[in-house]
C-alpha cells in the first residue's frame, strides 16, 4: 500500500495515533465550533423567514446537516468494516467502536429536531412514513453496533460481527436516501442534489453550507477524540501508555 502517505500510515500505529492526533482534535474542535456558531447565528438572526414555513424553517439549519451527517458516519463505519475484514487493521476496529455511539446520539438528535420541526410545520411531531422510519432503523443499527461490541467477549469476533452488521446495514442508507422518491411521504424530497438543481433560495444556502461543513468537522473531532480514548484503554499494558499515565509523556 505504497500509495498511502507516510503521515497516514503512521496513524495506523496506536502509539503514534495517540500522540499525533491530539493537535488535530484541538483544531477540529476549534474550527467546527467557530463554523457552527457562525452558521447558527446567521441562520437564526440574519436570514428572512421562509415564505411557507415562517421561522420554524430555521430548525433546518441544524436538523438537515445532522440528518445528512449520520448517514455519512454510518457509511464510514461500513468502509472501516470492509478495511477490518480485508486487512485486519486494528485502527479500523477502533474507528467502528468510536464512531457508533457518536452516530447513535446524532441520529437521536436528527430524529428529535425533526420532530420539533414537524410539530409546527406538519401539524404532527411524528408520522410513520418511509423517511422517518428508515432513520429510526438507522438509530437501531447504530445501537446494534454498540450492543454487539459489549455482548461479544472475544474482541476479534466482536470486530468481525460489527463489520458485517455495518456493511449489511448500508442497505438502509439507500432506503433513507431514496425513501422520498420510492414512497409517498410527508417528508419533502432532497433540496440539494450533488449533480442536480438546488431547490433552496440562495439567501439560505450560506448558513446551511457553513453548518453542514462545521458539523462534519465537529463529528470528525468527536470520533478522533473517542478513538484516542479507546486506543488508551486497549493498549493499557504498553510502555508508551504507562509513561503517559505516569505523566512522563503528554
Amino acid at each position: 500500500m505504497n500509495f498511502i502517505p507516510t503521515w497516514l500510515r503512521r496513524l495506523a500505529s496506536p502509539q503514534h495515533f495517540f500522540g499525533d492526533i491530539k493537535l488535530w482534535i484541538a483544531w477540529l474542535y476549534v474550527l467546527g465550533t467557530i463554523g457552527f456558531l457562525v452558521g447558527s447565528v446567521w441562520g437564526l438572526a440574519f436570514v428572512p423567514p421562509e415564505r411557507y414555513q415562517g421561522d420554524s424553517f430555521r430548525i433546518l439549519f441544524v436538523h438537515a446537516p445532522i440528518a445528512h451527517l449520520v448517514q455519512v458516519i454510518y457509511i464510514s463505519i461500513a468502509i472501516a468494516g470492509v478495511v477490518h475484514l480485508v486487512w485486519k487493521l486494528k485502527m479500523a476496529d477502533i474507528y467502528m467502536s468510536a464512531a457508533a455511539p457518536i452516530g447513535c446520539w446524532l441520529t437521536v438528535l436528527a430524529l428529535v429536531s425533526g420532530m420539533i420541526w414537524g410539530a409546527p410545520t406538519w401539524g404532527t411531531a411524528w408520522v410513520w412514513d418511509a423517511r422517518t422510519v428508515s432513520t429510526l432503523i438507522l438509530f437501531f443499527l447504530f445501537f446494534g453496533l454498540i450492543v454487539l461490541r459489549r455482548v461479544i467477549p472475544n474482541p476479534t469476533r466482536a470486530a468481525a460481527a460489527l463489520s458485517i452488521l455495518a456493511i449489511v446495514g448500508t442497505i438502509n442508507i439507500f432506503i433513507i436516501k431514496f425513501s422520498v422518491v420510492w414512497f409517498k411521504t410527508l417528508h419533502q424530497p432532497a433540496s440539494i442534489e450533488l449533480f442536480g438543481d438546488i431547490a433552496i433560495a440562495p439567501v439560505f444556502l450560506a448558513p446551511l453550507f457553513i453548518n453542514i461543513a462545521s458539523t462534519y468537522v465537529l463529528a470528525a473531532g468527536f470520533i478522533l477524540a473517542n478513538m484516542r480514548y479507546l486506543v488508551a484503554v486497549r493498549n493499557v499494558s504498553m510502555t508508551w501508555n504507562q509513561e503517559w499515565v505516569q505523566g512522563r509523556k503528554q
Binding site: 423567514p49 415562517g54 420554524s56 441544524v62 436538523h63 438528535l109 477524540a225 473517542n226
Partner: peptide, 27 residues
C-alpha cells in the same frame, strides 16, 4: 419568532447540548 420561538430555540438548545456532551465525554 412569530410563535415558532419555542420550537426553534428548543431545537438549537438540544443540538448544542448534544454536541457539548459528545465533545466533552471522550476527554
Amino acid at each position: 419568532m412569530d410563535g415558532h420561538g419555542i420550537y426553534v430555540w428548543s431545537a438549537y438548545i438540544l443540538t448544542i447540548t448534544v454536541l457539548l456532551g459528545l465533545g466533552s465525554y471522550p476527554f
